[in-house]
Write a protein that binds this DNA or RNA. Structure first.
Lengths: 334, 334
DNA sequence: TTGTACGCGTTATCAT
DNA sequence: ATGATAACGCGTACAA
């Protein structure tokens, strides 16, 4: 690989001059510019970003921590983030932590070592341990699809509890009285707890009867979890007419299971999902669901770190509005 | 941020000694090790990877070029790649090129500047322009889900043509005689051309009548493309009993469209997809499809670059076997 | 066992 | 307008 020295030699100037034309620093004649540019072209010279980073203390790199990569939701986020980051001339290092504390610490160490300019932490609980490490390094941090109640870290998210509340209320407004919930992991502080809370709050604020067994939860949020949870729910409460699902995957799994059980959707049981993954459009029936502007959220989070990097101090957290996408999986009761 | 100097001062040793314990280079007493380690702990010191990279000429970073991020298939690949890369102590910079030549060149420039140790180029045509740039820099390169016929670059992929051939043959073996294809972008050298070729070869090798209009193609490979292509196909050839789709998304879109048109799947029309995205399990009916071991392929590609980085010269290209996942979207004809 | 000093490729501060 | 040179943080040959 050619270095600035090679260019200098080929152009018969000093490295200082090469550096000047490279960075448009003014202080060189048109002739030398040409000579230098020719030499650069000739040698296929590309400035060494590592050396630049060493002196400028900027790597133009930002680190992204996600629990998993192979989910539509996360993909969209990453896509949005990457777009903005690249637009601003930086690049993105992705780390998938599998929600594993040890791995996360490892990745954090790595990102610090790599001298990333900023960090985006996604969909998980920001442990003290993580925070201290980042705080100590002084690297700007923003939370995406999660938040910290007691730590001063800006975040970008939707109000999950409210979204779940609305989803449930939507069922109530459609005349449903016996409503069950298919929840994912109830210990999940992001997608578990708040959605269950929203569900319960909606029922109680409309004075609808509720018992604990009307919430069927499982390990995860996958369609298999949805299928098994649904079966359990229907054996305990065969008179349920509406289901609030904690994810589209679960809702889809539930639909599939209903099909096997001979239960018609939405004629016999209505269902509303959560996430608005693309497949909702083409499921049978098309799935009514809660949508978050995921890509947009990623973009905003990216902008936030970048702004912080550029010195704009602490940013305000932003809560994005969710939206109910009405399709055909909810039937109006009379 | 604390530097090695700070640690040296705090531990009352020279930076050389700190460096030694840091890298386990032997040549220091147990006492000094302790002193140094305490100082490191105390200061929360993390070695500066940028400085290390400058001297070692290794950044422990590999660059990944993908056309798009928000597709299940790509996500899985990225996931597999990231796993291996991280296992080996490196990290991954993702770039989504949107199959745009200009953007790709930009990204390439960026990756060279960042001094990545290796590059994985995914699902697209490796232009001369790209190759020359990378070749010139001497950075190891491997192709994933694509290949180059005339350039000496190792690749990891499945045989798309063969897979499509088998998918078509599968229909033939199930007694179908009037078979149509829903292709994506026919100019796509990766997912377009080879799959259409495989389709035609299967028909002709079984001496089944074929006309050009039995291949309906569209811009992309999405479910909307699938839906519109299917409608076109059925108006031209209402007697078709089987469809080979170039992607699961298209197959799913086609199923949805068939539903609207009152056509029963698979009773009236059978369909086989391509990709085996998770949703195939729960579509109605569950979708028979071609599966590639995507995550595995990503892992292997990652291993290949890493090996090349570690000096293992040119690697052999590997072609992974595809697999037909039998579900319920294909009916046996009598 | 330990320390000194040079170099990695670049930018920036002085001179000239 | 241009050049010499000192940093940036680290690894390492060499000296002690």
């Amino acid at each position: 690989m050619a270095t600035i020295k090679d260019v200098a030699r080929a152009a018969n100037v000093s490295i200082a001059t090469v550096s000047r034309v490279l960075n448009n620093k003014s202080g060189f004649s048109e002739d030398t510019r040409k000579a230098v540019e020719e030499a650069i072209e000739e040698l296929g010279y590309v400035p060494n970003g590592v050396a630049r980073g060493l002196i400028s203390k900027r790597t133009n790199t930002i680190g992204l921590l996600v629990p998993a990569l192979s989910s539509m939701l996360v993909s969209e986020m990453v896509s949005g983030i990457e777009r903005i980051v690249h637009e601003q001339g930086s690049s993105l290092i992705v780390c998938h932590t599998e929600s594993n504390g040890k791995k996360t610490m490892q990745y954090l160490q790595l990102l610090l070592a790599k001298q990333v300019d900023g960090i985006i932490f996604t969909s998980g609980v920001l442990l003290q341990e993580y925070y201290q490490m980042i705080e100590r390094s002084g690297i700007p941090l923003v939370l995406l699809s999660t938040e910290s109640l007691h730590l001063p870290v800006p975040s970008v998210k939707v109000n999950d509890r409210l979204a779940s509340f609305h989803a449930t209320e939507y069922m109530i407004q459609h005349g449903h009285k016996k409503i069950g919930m298919i929840s994912g992991n109830r210990n999940d502080m992001i997608a578990g707890v708040p959605r269950v809370e929203g569900f319960r709050m909606a029922l109680s604020s409309h004075q609808i009867h509720f018992e604990e067994s009307m919430i069927a939860s499982h390990r995860g949020f996958s369609y298999i979890d949805g299928a098994t949870a649904f079966r359990k729910l229907m054996t305990d409460h065969p008179d349920i007419t509406a289901i609030v699902a904690a994810s589209d995957d679960m809702a889809l799994g539930m639909i599939s299971e209903a099909f096997k059980m001979g239960i018609k959707i939405p004629e016999q049981v209505s269902v509303i999902g959560y996430d608005n993954i693309p497949i909702c459009n083409v499921s049978i029936p098309p799935l009514t669901t809660i949508s978050q502007p995921v890509a947009k959220m990623g973009e905003v989070a990216a902008k936030m770190v970048l702004d912080m990097i550029h010195g704009d101090e602490k940013q305000e957290s932003v809560v994005f509005p969710h939206e109910i996408i009405e399709r055909q999986s909810v039937k109006k009761m009379n």
